[in-house]
Each structure stands twice: as C-alpha cells, then as structure tokens.
Design a protein around this nucleic acid. Structure first.
Lengths: 198, 198
DNA sequence: GGTCGATGTATCGAGCTGATACATCTGCAG
DNA sequence: CTGCAGATGTATCAGCTCGATACATCGACC
C-alpha cells in the first residue's frame, strides 16, 4: 500500500494513459496542452508519480516489438494495467472537494466523457458552491473593511469578482445542459423506447 | 545578506505594512481579502517570511505603549524600518517576469498606486504578452494534435481561451487609460500650467 | 463560571516547482 | 559526410509552500 499519491496527478496520468500508452515527455506535453490555460505539470512531480504508479502495479512499461532487443532503451512507454483501469474508474467516481478546487477541477472536467452523469453533476455543483462561497467571503470581508480602497485595488477586486461570476454562469449553463440530458434520458426510459430519437 | 526571500511574498508583506503596522494574523486576513479571488497565503510561508525580514532589518516589532511592560505578549505588531521602505521602493520599481506571472501579477497590481506610471505600463504590457504567448502555445499545440477531441475537452479549451481573451481585453483597456493619462500629463507639462485643471 | 468560536503565534511533513544535468535523435548547412 | 544546434527524452535536487496541527488567549453569551 504505497498508495498516498497526489490524486489530481494520479487521475491525470491514468486518464491520459487510458486513451493510449505514452512516455513521460509526451505525457507532459499532452497534459500541458489539455490544461494549457489553467495549469502546468513539471517533471519533478510527473516522474515520481510514474514511479509510484509502477511500484503499485497500476501501470507497466510497455515491451518493445521484441526483435529490437539490444540495449537501445531511450523511450519508456507506459500503459495501464487492469488494476490501473480499476483505480481510474474509482477516481472517476469520486466527487468531493478534491474534484472542484482550482487545481483539480480542470482535470476532472477534462475526463468527463468517462464520468457518470450523476457524478458530473455533483462535481459541477460542488465547483459552483466553492466559487459562490469564495465570493461571499470576499464580499463580507470587504464590507467589514473600514477604509475605502484606492482605484487600482477596486479595479482588481471588480475584475476578480466579474471573472468568478462569469465562471458561475458558465457552470450554470453546463448544469442545465446536464439536467436536460438526464431528463431526456429518464423520459425515453419511461417511454420504453430506448434510443428511438437519438 | 540573508536576502533570498520569495519576492512576491516580500512585496506583499512590505506593501501591507507600509500602509499601517500589523500583526501576522491580521496581515494574512488583509492579503487574503485583497487577493481573495486570485490566491491565498498560508502561515507556513508568512511566518518564515516575517522572520527573514526581521533578521534582515527590514521590519521591527513595534514597542507596546511602554507602561504595560509585564510579560503579557500576545500580539506581535510589525512595522517597516527605513531600510524596509527603501527595499519596498526597489521592489516597486522592478518590472520583469516576476511581476506578471499568474501568482505575482495581482500583488503588483494591488500596489500600483505606489508604482511609477512607466513601471505600471511595462507590467501591464508584460502581463499581456505573457497571456498572448500562452494562447499562442496552446493554439499551435492544438493545431498539431491529430485526433479530434470530445465535447467536454473542447468546452474546457473554449472556456479557458475565452477567459484569457477577456483578461487581455481588460489589460488593453487599462493600458489605454494609462497611456491617456501619461499623454495628459505630458501635455499639461508642455503647457507649463502644472495642476491647473486638476 | 463555563464554554465556544474568533483571534493569535508557530511548526512540520509531504509534495511541488524551477533549475539543472545529461543523453539521443534529427535536420541541415558547409 | 561531418558537425552542430535544437527538439526529444529521462532524471534529480534544493528550496519553498501548503494543509494540518498544536496550543494559548480573548470576548460574548447563557
């Protein structure tokens, strides 16, 4: 039970390797493209994570095509094991603070196509609550502040608040879409005509 | 020369203490209100920073009102020294990568009222370049990607890109305002009527 | 008088970042 | 064909930060 890895990183790696086997360098590029606007992973965290996943048997080094046996070992391609896939499913099922914080929400969202509808909804709502809570904190703290702020500080506050409000609106749209899809699905299930109109 | 502190944190602390003396707890609250939407500082970084600033003589513990001498030492109020003010001015003059990265831009912006107009402009432009560079990287990386992405990943990309574009537009407005003010100023200087219409 | 939450200082282990080192492969200019 | 610059690729380390935790005091309220 070496298993006390980062969680976000673990999901990112297992999720990426689920699509297709990769080596470290390419894995990093993939992730940093996927999340380019939000965050960037560094080798100092990726390689230790890969090492841990190896010793836990969640991934293995993919064998070269067998005829090239000589020492030339430049790329190390990793792929998921059965346990790895199981662990990935487990991670994709969890909806908790670790799925809607700033650093981790993007990753969870990026793998939503492998996530159950109900879990998706809970993560989106959790994220929204998190942002609303943050706005509330800042607002009350601001209200308690006696001295009035200079124009630059005010502008920073305004811009920050507006950005968060925009993300909340974005989340609202996504949540509505998810709800509508869930309603469609349960409706067509009630009609017992599965797959009739889509 | 103990001086290899974090920089962002140093600016945040010195800048806050410049407004008025504070103790650690209040300092943290101030900063986390000021930057509530962007980041949060923890004690684990604040206290070591304060300790370093103390040993470097940039801040000192403020003396209690002198008649209460008995051991009751619950609050430790810090204030800037002359060297501290000097150091703060030095930090406020610097415009470089450390002023426009994600973690530090907010701090620098929050203290813009103490920053010279020219430095403000360079920081805003540096921040804009940084964001445009990031967009460019993601866009070319996306273009090189062969396989088409699923709808969730696409939506994440779209939302991230839109957020960054919005921040660029915001920066553009700020830069225009700054330029206009600079032009006004040099105009009124050319007229040799300092302070006539303000 | 008791006790609960806010205020307040302080530290520690776990884990990440940014830098660095070093090897290989590929394209291409001379 | 040779050399060499830049992309590809693996790996580690010092320094720093986060989140948790510990502990003490204070004011308010019943």
């Amino acid at each position: 039970m070496t298993g006390s890895r980062n969680g976000v990183l673990e999901l990112a790696v297992l999720g990426s390797l689920h699509e297709n086997p990769l080596h470290g360098y390419e894995l990093r590029k993939r992730l940093n493209t996927l999340l380019g606007m939000f965050r960037a992973f560094s080798y100092g965290s990726l390689y230790p994570c890969l090492k841990g996943l190896l010793t836990d048997g969640l991934i293995v080094e993919e064998e070269p095509p067998d005829d090239v046996v000589l020492g030339r070992r430049s790329k190390i391609v990793y792929k998921l094991t059965a346990e790895g896939k199981e662990r990935l499913q487990e991670l994709l099922t969890q909806a908790g603070p670790s799925s809607w914080e700033d650093e981790s929400f993007g990753i969870h969202f990026a793998f939503f196509r492998h996530t159950e509808a109900e879990v998706r909804l809970r993560i989106l709502e959790g994220r929204r609550s998190r942002l609303e809570e943050r706005m509330e904190n800042v607002r009350t703290a601001l209200a308690r502040t006696r001295e009035r702020l200079d124009s630059y500080t005010l502008e920073l506050q305004r811009h920050g608040l507006e950005s968060v409000e925009r993300e909340v609106r974005w989340l609202n749209e996504l949540i509505n879409t998810e709800r509508a899809q869930a309603a469609d699905k349960s409706q067509s299930e009630r009609d017992e005509r599965p797959g009739s109109d889509e």
